[in-house]
């Protein structure tokens, strides 16, 4: 029995738990990208920086809350600061829409024009972030580090492999479930949510039905901003905050959105987990698992890794390229919110 349980725990510890957390972060990011794509019809390259901005506001608010002595230990103070981060990000997105994107919407600009515009926006937000908070690494997780320590697990279970769950991972998954549930409830059950789906489905007919386009667009930005702030903060909590990282996070996020079928919220979530688990499974060293199952030394002294860990981030790009080649519409094809 232990021969089977040990490798399972090993996989759970290094693939399942981190995969669930990373997948949730990607899914939240991809959901934001997909919303903008469905309603506003463009690929928003600045989404990564918007996430970073949300995380930054949350971090600054965390420092402020701590300075006035507020905390919700053992949970990280950042959770208390998150609403402020969301509000700040909503403000940013609405401002950007008013100053930048609205002009192109009224012009009915092509999606490439939008894309270039969003690159400009990416530059500006990125610059502002580095200007305000600097380019350095910041760890702002002041809560308990572990929900379950590997040593504790070993003692309880008597197995030789440990299973550790970081509290940031648990918080990430928990928050993501709540947020996703709220989004789906909003889109499928409320009048406003349905009007957003209607607008995404058929813009002209939505106008004929008396749906106010400006309102739909504003709500889309508000939701996108909220998602971005939550995703950015959770990623920062889990892996520490570094402005440069978010620029690179855009690609796995787009990969997730496209793999799932861009414009489709369910697809974005599935895509997020597909990307996260592929990254982990392809770069996991199966040596120990094989040793448990088939005994030591059967496969020589190789790590039994499909890809070197160096290529972890490249996995998402490879999947992206393969999906674009084979099924550009993604798993849940078509654009429907």
């Amino acid at each position: 029995m232990e021969m089977l349980l040990n490798p399972l725990v090993l996989l759970a510890n290094f693939v399942l738990v981190p995969g669930l957390a990373y997948g949730s972060q990607l899914a939240l990011g991809a959901l934001g990208v997909t919303m903008v794509y469905a309603v506003l019809n463009f690929s928003n390259f600045s989404h990564g920086e918007v996430m970073s901005f949300g995380a930054m506001i949350t971090i600054l608010s965390t420092y402020w809350l701590k300075s006035i002595g507020l905390s919700i230990s053992p949970l990280p103070t950042a959770l208390l600061a998150l609403p402020l981060g969301i509000l700040g990000t909503i403000g940013l997105c609405l401002l950007l829409d008013r100053l930048v994107f609205r002009f192109y919407r009224h012009q009915r600009a092509s999606s490439v024009t939008y894309l270039i515009v969003s690159i400009g926006v990416m530059f500006v937000i990125g610059g502002v972030i580095r200007f305000v908070i600097g380019p350095n690494d910041r760890n702002f997780n002041d809560g308990d580090r572990f929900l379950l320590k590997a040593r504790e697990f070993k003692e309880i279970s008597g197995l030789s492999e440990g299973l550790a769950i970081k509290s940031s991972q648990a918080i990430t998954v928990f928050t993501a479930v709540i947020v996703v549930a709220a989004i789906f409830w909003f889109l499928n059950r409320t009048r406003t949510g349905k009007s957003m789906r209607a607008y995404a489905d058929n813009q002209d007919l939505a106008l004929l039905s008396g749906i106010n386009p400006d309102r739909v667009v504003s709500i889309t930005w508000i939701i996108t901003a909220g998602l971005a702030a939550v995703a950015g903060t959770l990623y920062g909590l889990d892996k520490s905050y570094k402005p440069l990282v978010y620029l690179h996070l855009v690609l796995p996020i787009f990969a997730a959105a496209i793999v799932g079928g861009v414009g489709n919220p369910l697809g974005a979530i599935v895509g997020g987990f597909v990307i996260a688990f592929s990254e982990l499974l392809l770069t996991f060293a199966y040596k120990k698992v094989a040793a448990y199952l088939f005994g030591e030394g059967l496969f020589g002294d190789g790590l039994l890794q499909i890809l070197s860990t160096d290529y972890k981030f490249a996995v998402s790009f490879m999947i992206l390229v393969v999906v674009l080649l084979i099924k550009p519409t993604g798993i849940f094809s078509g654009k429907s919110l």
Binding site: S195, R197, D201, N202, L205, A206
Partner: peptide, 26 residues
């Protein structure tokens, strides 16, 4: 006033009932 265009006159991804609901948006 209400207008039924010649093509693209329903919300394809929404159910019939949701289509009617959207019609009554105002």
């Amino acid at each position: 006033m209400a207008f039924v265009p010649q093509t693209h006159n329903v919300f394809n991804s929404m159910t019939v009932e949701e289509n009617l609901e959207m019609g009554a948006f105002i």
